[in-house]
């Protein structure tokens, strides 16, 4: 995942994965969450999702939680991951506020 470290901006995929993991989910459920919440606009391939989950786990933003009913691996967001997601929400608020000021009135 190429996230802009300096500016703090997350890619859309990263942000959606973090949001999906406020409740524990396995890979397929994450993909469904993203498709449902974007109306199918953002559709993730399984290979890409696998890579993204691994790199987020390496960063410590998500973690594997205990394997429920046998084999399925579930992931959950960590405190650090929540912080990153909240920072992103603030950044987006700031962005939409500015945008509202400039284009909002005309819409």
């Amino acid at each position: 995942m190429r996230d802009n470290v300096k500016g703090g901006a997350l890619t859309e995929v990263t942000f959606y994965i973090l949001l999906s993991l406020y409740k524990p989910k396995h890979g397929y459920a994450i993909m469904q969450f993203i498709e449902e919440n974007t109306g199918g606009r953002l559709s993730l391939g399984a290979g890409t999702l696998y890579g993204a989950l691994n790199s987020l786990a390496d960063k410590g933003w998500i973690e594997l939680c205990s394997e429920k009913d046998g084999r399925k691996k579930e992931y959950l967001i960590t405190a650090e991951g929540r912080e990153a997601a909240e920072r992103e929400l603030m950044r987006l608020h700031e962005l939409t506020e500015t945008a509202d000021k400039i284009i909002g009135g005309a819409l």
Binding site: M1, R2, T11, V13, S43, L44, G45, A46, G47, T48, G51, A52
Partner: peptide, 8 residues
Amino acid sequence: ELRTTAED
């Protein structure tokens, strides 16, 4: 498709 982002 298995890979859906440019970076990946």
